[in-house]
């Protein structure tokens, strides 16, 4: 029942929320002592609770980095698991402070929905998963397929665009929760399961026989995933952006959670500026000067987050690919701290 009621409650919250709650998110966060972070309801590698209710994942690490920057304590985060449908309303109504929930950056979301995208913490694209026994080698052979997906996502639109442009008939079966999509696909209701490629690898682990399924080579869309904040609070927007950039800059400069204390003595100007031993960059975003040091010390740089959550050594085993640094042939690039 919760899923039925949530949008209503949130809608009412939008209507009633005091006008003052709009600005000053940082002050609110400091006053209440934690960051309220909207995440998925369970997507391994991005935001997933374990048996004890501890959240892990790339998106979760971003929340922890924010908390580390503000409070010097990565545990000062509370998580709100949200369905794809609820997520934006929750952010708009002030229910949560930031939304890192493998959310695709699109124009309409960035504008008409009153949201701001902080950056891209994972470059993704939509893919298809099928049973190997179907004998399909390419998405172009999927004419007439039953396709399972999540409702209220860009994937639902991409798949419609793809099949329409290729003039292939298809039937969409769209569920509210990712778990139900997996169950229905596993039961054989659908021939194809479509979502972001990273999600396919993650959800495949939940299937009865993961080895009987394969991800097709085609990537049919651009899905830049990143954290989102509300429009109208530039201070909070800046802070959220620079916590993200700090993690990428740290990787580029070779600063890791292991060597950050040594690096504090570094003579390299860019490292000094990042770690706050030179300049007053923390003040400009309303934090102490060692904000980035705290992020790297407690959570690590972007590369470390990636390796820990989705990298080749994890169950997901995703290569860096597009998510490598720009200097290593990828797309991850952050403006300099100066």
């Amino acid at each position: 029942m919760t899923m039925k009621i949530m949008p209503l409650v949130l809608g009412a919250a939008v209507a009633l929320a005091a006008t003052a709650a709009n600005a000053g998110t940082l002050d609110d966060v400091k006053a209440k002592g934690f960051v309220q972070c909207g995440v998925s309801q369970g997507l391994p590698g991005f935001s997933n609770p374990d048996d004890q209710g501890n959240w892990t994942g790339l998106d979760v690490d971003y929340c922890r980095a924010l908390a580390a920057a503000i409070f010097n304590d990565p545990s000062k985060v509370k998580f709100s698991p949200l369905s794809a449908k609820e997520r934006f309303t929750a952010l708009q109504s002030g229910e949560i402070d930031v939304l890192p929930r493998n959310t695709t950056w699109t124009m309409s979301r960035d504008t008409a929905l009153g949201l701001n995208f902080v950056g891209v913490n994972y470059y993704d694209g939509q893919g298809f998963m099928v049973r190997k026994s179907l004998g399909v080698a390419s998405a172009l052979e999927l004419s007439g397929a039953n396709v399972c997906t999540n409702t209220g996502t860009t994937t639902e639109l991409n798949v419609a665009d793809y099949f329409r442009s290729k003039d292939m008939p298809y039937q969409i079966v769209a569920f509210e929760k990712a778990d139900e999509v997996v169950q229905a696909y596993d039961a054989g209701r659908c021939d194809v399961y479509t979502t972001d490629a990273s999600g396919l690898y993650a959800q495949r682990l939940k299937l009865t026989n993961p080895d009987e399924h394969m991800v097709l080579p085609e990537i049919i869309s651009k899905e830049p995933l990143g954290p989102v904040v509300r429009q109208g609070d530039d201070e909070w927007f800046n802070l959220a952006k620079w916590v993200h950039f700090a993690a990428i800059n740290a990787e580029e400069l070779g600063v890791t959670s292991a060597n950050v204390d040594e690096m504090k003595n570094s003579e390299t100007p860019s490292v000094k500026r990042l770690l706050g031993t030179e300049g007053e960059y923390g003040k400009a975003i309303g934090l102490s000067n060692d904000w980035a040091y705290n992020v790297i010390k407690h959570v690590g740089n972007y590369g470390e987050m990636f390796e820990r959550n989705v990298g080749p050594s994890t169950q997901l085993g995703i290569a860096r690919g597009l998510n490598a640094l720009w200097s290593k042939g990828g797309l991850q690039y952050a403006p300099p701290v100066r």
Binding site: M3, G11, T89, T151, L157, F175, E176, K177, E180
Partner: peptide
């Protein structure tokens, strides 16, 4: 409750529209 099992009733379709347009109210 149809929304739980992918039957496209008013709430399910409305939810998709809500998400695409963001016009919750």
């Amino acid at each position: 409750l149809a929304v739980a099992i992918a039957y496209p009733d008013l709430v399910s379709v409305g939810g998709t529209v809500l998400n695409q347009t963001g016009q919750a109210i």
